[in-house]
Design a protein around this nucleic acid. Sequence first.
DNA 1: TAGATTGTTAATCGATTAACAATC
DNA 2: TAGATTGTTAATCGATTAACAATC
Lengths: 222, 222
Amino acid sequence: MRENGGEYVSVPSVRRLPLYLGFLKEFKRGRFEYVSGTQIAEHFNLQSIQIRKDLAVTKVKGKPKMGYKVDELIQAIELFLGWDNIADAFLVGAGNLGMALLGYERFDELGLNIVATFDSDPAKVGEVFYGREVLPVEKLGNLIERMHVKVAILTTPAASAQALADLMVGSGVRGIWNFTQVVLKTPPGVIVENVRLSSSLSVLTSKLKEMLDSERPRIELE
Amino acid sequence: MRENGGEYVSVPSVRRLPLYLGFLKEFKRGRFEYVSGTQIAEHFNLQSIQIRKDLAVTKVKGKPKMGYKVDELIQAIELFLGWDNIADAFLVGAGNLGMALLGYERFDELGLNIVATFDSDPAKVGEVFYGREVLPVEKLGNLIERMHVKVAILTTPAASAQALADLMVGSGVRGIWNFTQVVLKTPPGVIVENVRLSSSLSVLTSKLKEMLDSERPRIELE
DNA sequence: TAGATTGTTAATCGATTAACAATC
DNA sequence: TAGATTGTTAATCGATTAACAATC
């Protein structure tokens, strides 16, 4: 991941920035003007050097002994992530997960605004969830073009994921937040970020299995 | 992550295993007996050497020229992840996201069975979702003990997350799939796996911002 | 001033990739 | 047999951590 004027920024660093952002917003409520890398590190059980490295991508300069200006950091992280300007997004797939995302009320803090939902199921089309009507997928391509929507959240069944991705990309979508199992094929210039809950769960269960197995009393071999 | 009789297994490898598993199950439907690392690699746009390294953790031996036995791999991955025995789990927090997870019908394939849901909101308690009644959190600790439940899915608001984690761990929970923003403090011997949707979104938006910025025509500086 | 904290450069650690012998 | 693929050891790449001078 290359950005910020040729400076290399690692994906793990980018993934940690929203955590810091949440903490900083909370911290700000305590009316603190400055925050040190050490304080952030303690909260997340990380090394302070990692915090300093991560924050360096924002180009914010801290003061020795004082730390970083909280407000400055918040703004700089939001700027870096592109969360300072809220982008319109379409939600495609009005199933369980799609509806849960639609109901999340703080996407504006994550730089996103879900302006419409689409589904292929005629039974769902026309229904209103969280103040937004479900539109037929037939209108998806046209609306992407007309509204210049660049971000789509894909929460459909696997079977229709690739065809919808093709349609959306053809209409101008440049970023897909993909909650399906499908490995989407997209042309260069389109960003796909996959959310794989099964990957997360696999880390939990394999660690848990290892731990519980290691505790299990076993018959002594000779 | 140390397992499998002292062999080191990396977290990224573990995260890829469920992807392979899904592909293998699909592949099996095509009545293929063997699958090569090359075939899996092509499907996921990965290097075949990475597939071979990842699959090595399962201890399954492939045959040169032939590949790996599909059935054998499926079983070995499920065994490694602990998905061969389905564990009972409690869902704590009957909000949007919690309900979406409850509605997911294939957790058995991921080694999990959500047997009960809990919420602190009296308005939700007693309601039935997807065939399961929402129970009051007051019963949580007691039921964890009585049913020997080891896994909990935490989807509550941030404010109550830590207190509930303490309660659950005190009652015998050893693994928490944490969907809240909170950095949970737990004693050694308890596994916490965090799902951070904001981290995923941050990768998408920062890459997208970089890409769109690089395309934007700009005034030439002399 | 003294000392805590930043920011940079170097060292270490871990994951991915390359090379290649073994083999079906 | 010839050749594709596995499995292992070595090399490379990238991320984290250590060290330490700069400085408020």
